[in-house]
Amino acid sequence: NQASVVANQLIPINTALTLVAMRSEVVTPVGIPAEDIPRLVSMQVNRAVPLGTTLMPDMVKGYA
């Protein structure tokens, strides 16, 4: 099972992602792969992401 990126805190809309804001977890459905965490740092989310939410490619500006 592949680990996905999960919000480690509430991430407000247009907030730049940080290492502290993300964690890796095996979840269903699978979201952005955990190995992409370094690439996600400083990218912005295009919606509010609640704690525990799996990050999907369409939630991160410039990711997809």
Rank of each mutant, 00 (worst) to 15 (best):
R23S: 07
A16K: 14
V27P: 01
V20R: 14
T53R: 09
R47H: 07
T54S: 02
L10D: 15
T15K: 08
I11N: 02
Q9K: 12
V49W: 03
V27Q: 02
I37Q: 01
T15V: 09
A16R: 12
V60Q: 01
A48Q: 15
V27A: 05
V26K: 07
A21D: 13
I11W: 02
N14W: 15
I11Y: 02
N1Y: 15
L51R: 15
N1T: 15
L19T: 07
N14M: 10
M43T: 04
V6W: 00
K61N: 11
Y63Q: 05
A21C: 11
S24T: 11
Q44E: 11
I13H: 10
V5M: 01
R47Y: 07
E35Q: 10
A16N: 10
E25W: 08
E35V: 13
G62H: 08
L51C: 13
Q9C: 12
L10C: 15
E25T: 07
T15S: 14
M43W: 06
I11D: 01
P29S: 03
I32S: 02
A7D: 01
M22T: 02
P50Y: 09
D58E: 13
V60D: 04
D58M: 09
A64R: 14
Y63H: 05
M22D: 04
D36L: 11
S4V: 01
E35G: 12
A34F: 05
Y63M: 05
S24K: 14
S24H: 08
D58W: 13
V30T: 11
V27L: 03
P50S: 11
P57A: 11
N14R: 06
Q44M: 14
I32H: 00
M59N: 04
L19C: 09
S24M: 13
V6Y: 00
N1P: 15
N8S: 12
S4A: 03
M56G: 03
R39Q: 10
P57I: 05
V49D: 03
L17Q: 00
T18R: 08
L19Y: 12
I37Y: 02
D36M: 11
V6E: 01
G62P: 00
I37L: 11
T28K: 08
V27K: 06
T53H: 12
M59I: 04
V49L: 07
M56V: 07
T54Y: 00
P57N: 04
K61D: 13
T15I: 06
A16E: 14
G31Q: 01
I32R: 01
P29K: 04
P57T: 04
G62W: 07
R47D: 05
D58A: 12
V20I: 13
L10T: 13
Q44H: 15
A3T: 07
P29G: 02
R47G: 05
I37K: 02
G52D: 09
S4R: 01
T18M: 07
V26H: 11
L19W: 12
V26F: 13
D58Q: 14
V30L: 15
V45K: 02
M59H: 06
V6L: 06
V30K: 10
V45Q: 01
E25G: 08
M22Y: 01
R23C: 06
M56H: 07
V6P: 01
Y63R: 04
I13G: 09
D58C: 12
R23A: 07
V41E: 05
V45M: 02
P57F: 07
L40P: 01
V6H: 01
A21V: 12
E25C: 08
T18D: 06
N8H: 06
A7W: 00
N8Y: 02
V60A: 01
G31F: 03
S24I: 14
I37C: 02
N1W: 12
I37P: 01
L51M: 15
V6D: 01
A3D: 06
D36C: 14
L19K: 08
P57W: 12
K61T: 14
Q9I: 12
S24Y: 08
L40C: 04
V30S: 13
T53C: 09
V60K: 03
N1C: 13
G62A: 08
L19Q: 07
R47A: 09
P33L: 08
A48L: 15
Y63W: 13
V6Q: 02
I13S: 13
N14I: 04
L40D: 04
M43A: 07
T54W: 00
Y63S: 05
I11A: 02
L17R: 00
V26A: 07
V6S: 01
A7R: 01
T28A: 13
E25D: 11
S4L: 01
D58G: 09
M59P: 02
R23N: 06
Q2F: 13
M59K: 00
N46H: 06
L40F: 00
L10W: 11
M22R: 00
A7G: 03
A7Y: 00
K61F: 10
N1I: 15
R47I: 14
R47C: 11
M43N: 04
I32D: 02
T15D: 07
S24W: 09
E25F: 06
A34W: 06
M59G: 00
R47T: 11
V5K: 03
L40H: 00
V49P: 03
L10K: 10
L19S: 07
Q44T: 15
R47E: 09
T54G: 00
V49F: 02
E25V: 08
I11G: 04
K61L: 10
P33S: 09
L19P: 06
P38S: 12
V41W: 00
L19N: 06
Y63D: 05
N14C: 10
M22W: 00
V60T: 03
L10M: 12
A64N: 15
E25Q: 09
T18N: 06
L40G: 00
I13A: 14
P33H: 11
G62S: 08
L40Y: 03
L55E: 03
T54V: 10
V60G: 02
G52I: 00
T15E: 10
R39C: 14
V20W: 13
P29D: 04
V20Q: 14
P38G: 10
L17G: 04
A48E: 14
P38F: 12
V60N: 04
Y63E: 05
V26W: 11
E25N: 07
A64I: 13
V27M: 05
R47M: 11
A64F: 10
V20D: 14
L10A: 14
Q2D: 10
V20H: 13
R23G: 09
D58N: 11
L55Q: 01
V5T: 04
V49M: 01
M22A: 02
T53A: 13
P12D: 07
E35W: 10
M56F: 11
Q44I: 13
Q9E: 14
L17Y: 00
A16F: 15
R23I: 06
T53S: 12
V20S: 15
T15R: 07
L55K: 00
R39W: 11
P33A: 07
D36Y: 13
M22N: 03
S4N: 01
K61E: 14
R23M: 05
A48R: 14
M22S: 03
R47K: 10
N1E: 15
